[in-house]
Write a protein that binds this DNA or RNA. Structure first.
Length: 256
DNA sequence: ATGGCTACTCCTAGTAGA
């Protein structure tokens, strides 16, 4: 079983890269973020041609999440249960085989001290509430996506330059830690403890080429999933070449 | 990293992302 997460930064702009990547990696489930398109304009045909069924939860211009699956998806839910009708579309949940998957695009926060930054911290709290109310630590559960926070110094190319800034602020790290403390493991780190391993690089200034990145995309898993993990991979190749997303996919391989 | 790019839209300027 292969589960992947990828912030595609517009599915319409990224469609050739995403379909090429699906053909190459053949994940059982791809969790996408920042699809940036309303549901009836999602490029569904390209996914069907590659053997994937889609569940989308998008909006115009911003945000948007989607699940592309080769197998049957059940237990679908879109957004938080208490979302307002016009809430940002940042979360979609489904089940593939016995695995519950929550695909998230955590708010960026825009600016420290802003209402949106407070909303980012609150969003982490709502995610924790969802776990408390809906799941057990013993469930096979994966929460994956773009969390928009680098957890530790080793997740940032220059921690001293980034310390206290958006994406690397202690308040964000505490909010993430509270989520993890529910009973989740950042499974990439279980397998790759080293430095210099990132999932996002700024488009500007040749950041990718210079190795200036952050690790803000990951898969958080419960113990039953961690025990089945064979490998976790960041596909840096997907950040290269023509019209890449600024994020790389992260891939989790599980024993069936 | 001062910024430097990319993608979006009531589209050629402004907003947002991270």
């Amino acid at each position: 079983m292969r589960i992947a997460t990828w912030n595609v930064n517009s599915i319409r702009a990224r469609l050739p890269r995403v379909t090429e990547w699906l053909a190459s990696w053949s994940p059982d489930l791809l969790c996408m973020q920042e699809t940036k398109v309303v549901d009836d304009q999602f490029p569904r045909d390209a996914f069907a041609e590659h053997g994937y069924q889609l569940e989308v939860f998008g909006q115009k211009t911003y945000n948007g999440v989607a699940l592309a699956s080769r197998g049957s998806l059940t237990d679908l839910a879109r957004g938080f249960p208490d979302d307002a009708p016009d809430a940002d579309r940042r979360l979609i949940t489904g089940r593939i085989a016995d695995l519950h998957v929550i695909n998230v695009y955590v708010p960026n926060g825009t600016e420290l001290g802003s209402p949106r930054f407070a909303g980012k911290l609150a969003w982490f709290g709502r995610l924790r509430d969802l776990l408390d109310r809906t799941f057990s630590r013993d469930d096979p559960l994966i929460i994956c996506g773009d969390f928009n926070v680098a957890p530790e110094d080793r997740d940032v190319h220059d921690p001293e330059a980034w310390r206290g800034k958006l994406l690397f602020h202690p308040d964000e790290q505490r909010a993430l830690q509270h989520l993890l403390s529910w009973g989740l493991t950042d499974v990439f780190r279980e397998h790759h403890p080293g430095e210099g391993l990132f999932s996002w690089w700024d488009y500007r200034g040749g950041a990718f080429h210079r190795g200036w990145g952050l690790r803000i995309d990951y898969l958080l898993v419960t113990a039953p999933v961690a025990a089945r993990t064979r490998a976790v991979t960041i596909d840096r190749e997907a950040r290269k070449g023509n019209k890449p997303s600024d994020h790389a996919p992260v891939i989790l391989d599980l024993e069936d």
